[in-house]
Amino acid sequence: MNPQLASLQPYPFQRLRQLMAGAVPPAGKTHINLSIGEPKHPTPDVIKDALTANLGGLASYPATLGSPELRQACAAWMQRRYGLAMDADKQILPVNGSREALFAFVQTLVDASGEQRPVVISPNPFYQIYEGAALLAGAEPYYVNCLSDKRFQPDWQSVPEAIWQRTQVVFVCSPGNPTGAVMSLADWKNLFELSDRHGFVIASDECYSEIHFGQAPLGGLEAAAQLGRGFERIVMFTSLSKRSNAPGMRSGFVAGDAALLEKFLLYRTYQGGAMSPTIQAASAAAWNDEAHVEANRAAYIAKFDAVTDRLAAVLELARPDASFYLWARVPGGDDAAFARRLFEEEHITVLPGSYLARDAHGVNPGRGFIRIALVATLAECTEATDRIIRFMQNN
């Protein structure tokens, strides 16, 4: 067995199940699950219709590069969304969702053959795939804390020079999971200058980019263009899961540095990561349609409008820059105990923030927070808010 498997940490939801073992919710209250970032809005008809109209694709082996129609749809979306003219043949590659791509990309990039162990830098808190990808590639994960006094942005200045010298990949997530913080142009400029100095590749996870409140978040490639740069050493990752309420399709694409994508395509050709032709056709339909995205965004805005101010009266939180999470500080600082009591008293599940982070540099930046995913219906989110307010009043 790969010895690095032993270094993998339990996934946050495995830890959550362990936390809730033996917990008994109150009788008569329906369960409201706000712990997992799984979209619950209906999948749009434009996607379902395209799926059923292209079932013939199940009879064909897919091309790892993806169909020209899908790559053109992705390129057209990049033009509409960011004003970027992308080469659909060299700068875009369809993938089976961002999770698969984020993991496989690191396996493609990391060179562990040298005398010193390579480093992959991750924000902290973070999406657990970043850590697993680094460990299984033979790299050392290094965590850069994202604290409230730094606008929940990674404190790059805290990274020692010796770490930068070994760094091969830096993960960023904007809008961030779990904080919803968005990188500014100045943030991107700083990171690009560090990449120029140290030669690392930026893996920009942008899967929440279309869940916002009217101000579309700045993307990494968009920032590069605004700064007069090319796309060297940066690849962005995006997905239909959140944008189009289609997590079960496992569909997204990566875009950016053509030389890196050429190597990534080679890796994925052997890995077997090709997307079904049926899913490709439905994905092209999704990327070509914005009406369902606007409706989806409006539904999230309605939920934030209904609950944010009311929850802010009893918990320390604020509306995020983007995404569908609220990142709330809890009284007493024990986020796990808070989450278990909330389940036992109000039958609501939230995710302890410490499960999304690691102890690094003397602190776990998720400790004392909970992540509330506003993925349930408006009625359920409103009901959950009523219950949380009552819970806070009683504790």
Rank of each mutant, 00 (worst) to 15 (best):
A21S: 09
E232H: 12
R117I: 04
D305T: 09
R387K: 01
V363Y: 01
H292E: 02
V46H: 13
M1V: 08
A73G: 07
P68E: 10
F192M: 06
G22Y: 03
Y270V: 06
G138A: 13
P10V: 08
A274G: 09
S354E: 12
A376E: 09
G138K: 12
A85W: 07
E316C: 14
I211D: 02
R310P: 09
V363P: 03
T30Q: 06
P39N: 02
V159T: 13
A216I: 04
A360T: 11
V46W: 00
V201R: 15
L240D: 07
A133C: 08
S174Q: 13
H361K: 11
S204V: 08
A53S: 06
A298F: 04
R71L: 05
P12W: 01
R81Y: 07
P12S: 01
S184H: 02
L351E: 01
T269Q: 15
D155Q: 09
D289C: 14
A59E: 10
L5K: 14
L194I: 10
V159I: 11
L342A: 00
N395I: 12
G333S: 12
A224E: 08
N124M: 07
P175I: 01
P123A: 06
A282H: 03
L109S: 07
F343L: 09
G220V: 07
V172S: 12
S35L: 00
I372P: 00
M236C: 15
T278S: 00
